[in-house]
């Protein structure tokens, strides 16, 4: 296990699919390591089973009902925002130390990560954009309250990445004492797991409408993170899996909290 000492390196970890509690626990450990090294790290991951991750303060009942009907797992994130149906998305966790310039306000990290994706999608020919500041002044930001629409991809907030009217990337943060942890989900293709009412088009469905040939998902994600690193004057280093033996005990300890009824039912 190595922690980069140079803040000029964006370390990117890529993990095999894991359950919701393990993923959330790993992200907390990631945040601790970012705080310790003073820099920025990203963990890319997917899920071992289709999972609904709900925002830190969303009410349990509606999310639990959807998860039960769809026969999918349910986990509560430490970050805010709306619930995300995982299964056909690329999930990321970005962690930056509190002294890092990107940690000073929520919008800076949000915009950095999202702008990099917009640039890559536009280079592919997709008409991608970020939701403008005007949206919030029209009352749209209220949709991002915990009691707003259940699903993240039904909400709009300044900086969300959209292709046409469809949101394809949303993120939310947990601001900790030593670091900022940002969760996000890039919808690669639509997820049918929870039925038509919860199905939203992903990049694979939006590409053909604009005669765009999409890159393979792993290539797209790599270009996205390389673009992010370049925009920050950093080099991108792909470091392999984050969930290795040296972190296993710490991750397992934290995973118990995310499995607990107390955490899941905190609101």
């Amino acid at each position: 296990m190595s922690i980069p000492e140079k803040a000029s390196v964006l370390t990117v970890w890529e993990d095999a699919p894991a359950c919701g509690a393990t993923n959330m626990a790993a992200d907390e450990v990631l945040a601790e390591e970012a705080a310790a090294c003073g820099g920025m790290m990203v963990r890319l991951y997917t899920w071992s089973r289709p999972t609904l991750s709900m925002g830190g303060f969303q009410k349990l009942a509606e999310a639990e009902s959807l998860a039960r009907e769809a026969e999918i797992d349910l986990v509560r994130r430490p970050s805010g925002g709306g619930a995300i149906l995982h299964g056909t998305d690329q999930t990321y966790a970005a962690a930056v130390a509190r002294q890092h310039p990107l940690a000073s306000t929520p919008q800076l990290l949000y915009d950095a990560v999202h702008t990099a994706l917009v640039d890559v999608l536009c280079a592919m020919g997709l008409e991608a954009a970020m939701v403008s500041a005007d949206f919030g002044r029209d009352g749209g930001s209220g949709e991002s309250a915990p009691d707003g629409p259940l699903l993240c991809f039904d909400r709009r907030a300044m900086g969300d990445v959209v292709v046409g009217p469809h949101k394809v990337l949303g993120s939310a943060q947990r601001r900790l004492s030593g670091s900022v942890l940002q969760h996000g989900s890039l919808l690669l293709r639509q997820c049918d797991q929870a039925g038509p009412a919860s199905t939203r088009p992903g990049l694979a469905e939006l590409g053909p409408d604009t005669s765009v040939v999409l890159l393979p998902a792993d290539t797209l994600v790599r270009r996205w993170l390389e673009a992010l690193a370049a925009s920050l004057g950093m080099t991108c280093e792909f470091a392999g899996p984050f969930l290795v033996d040296g972190r296993g005990e710490r991750v397992a300890e934290r995973a118990e909290r995310f499995r607990s009824a107390a955490w899941l039912g905190r609101r």
Partner: peptide, 26 residues
């Protein structure tokens, strides 16, 4: 989210949480 009357608070430790559109903060 706020604590209840009677709850102990410790210097430097979280006593509540606040959520904005983008973030949850202690």
């Amino acid at each position: 989210q706020l604590p209840a009357v009677g709850a102990p608070v410790t210097a430097g430790e979280p006593f509540g949480e606040i959520e904005s559109v983008k973030a949850v903060s202690d």
